[in-house]
Amino acid sequence: MSQRQITFEILRYDPETETEPRFQAYCVPCEEEWVVLDALNYIKDTLDGTLNYRWSCHMAVCGSCGMMINGEPMLSCKAFIRDLPAGTIKVEPLYHFPIERDLVVVLDDFMDKLESVKPYVIPKKQRPIEDGPYKQTPKQLHQYQQYSMCINCLLCYAACPQYGLTPEFIGPAALALTHRYNLDSRDKGRRQRQEVVATHEGVWECSFVGACSEVCPKDVDPAGAIQQMKIASTADWYLEHLMPWRRS
C-alpha cells in the first residue's frame, strides 16, 4: 500500500471561543485511493475530535459534504487526493454561506428559497389514485430529467459570484428545480412559479457566468436551465404585450 504524508490546512471556527476563523494544519498519512473526506475522518478519529463537518453517504448522493477544496467547491467524498495538485490541500467551508462551526455552513437561506419556488407538482386537478399513473413518454421524461438530478449539495451557490454579491438571488439549484417542475408534463404550476422566478431576484439576476454548471457534481446544468427560463419569460412578455387577448 502506498501511503503519502499530506498536509491539510483546514479552516476552523468555534463561535464560542473565537471571533474569526483560522487555519489549522494537520499531517495525514493518506492511502492512494482516498478522497478528502477519508482524510477528514482520519483527523476526526485519530488527531482531533473537535473538527466538525457534515457527511453521510460517501457516495456522492446525499449532498452533505460540499466544501471548498483548494478554492474549488467540491464534494469531499468525490475529491480524490490523487487528482489534486501535489502539496498542501486547503479545505474551507462553502463560500457565500455563513460559517456555523468549522466546515459547517448555515443553510437556512437556501431552504427558504427552495420552498419559495414551489418545487412540487401542481396539477390542474387532483388525479384520483384509481386512475393510475399519468402517461409520460420517455421523451417527456427527458425534457426535465436532467434537472431532477440535483442533490442540493449547494456547490453551485458557492461557485456563483452573483449569489455572493447579491444574496437575494434565488440561485442556481432552486431555479433548476423550478425549471424541472415547469417542464414536467404532469405539472400545470408554471404560472404560479413565474411570480417568484421571473423577477430581478430570480432568473434575471443571473449573468450566465456558468460557474454553477462547471462545478455541479451531477451535471444538472443550472446555468442552462436559467437561460431557458429567461427565453421562456421573454416570450411570455412579448406574447402578453403583443397579443393581450391571450391572457386568461
Binding site: 396539477p123 389514485i129 420517455p138 417542475y181 414536467d184 405539472d187
Partner: peptide, 17 residues
C-alpha cells in the same frame, strides 16, 4: 402511483406507462 402523481420521475416504457 401516489408517488408518481407527486412527480417521481419513474423510468417509462415507450407508450408512457
Amino acid at each position: 402511483t401516489r408517488l408518481e402523481h407527486w412527480g417521481c420521475p419513474w423510468s417509462r416504457e415507450t407508450d408512457g406507462s
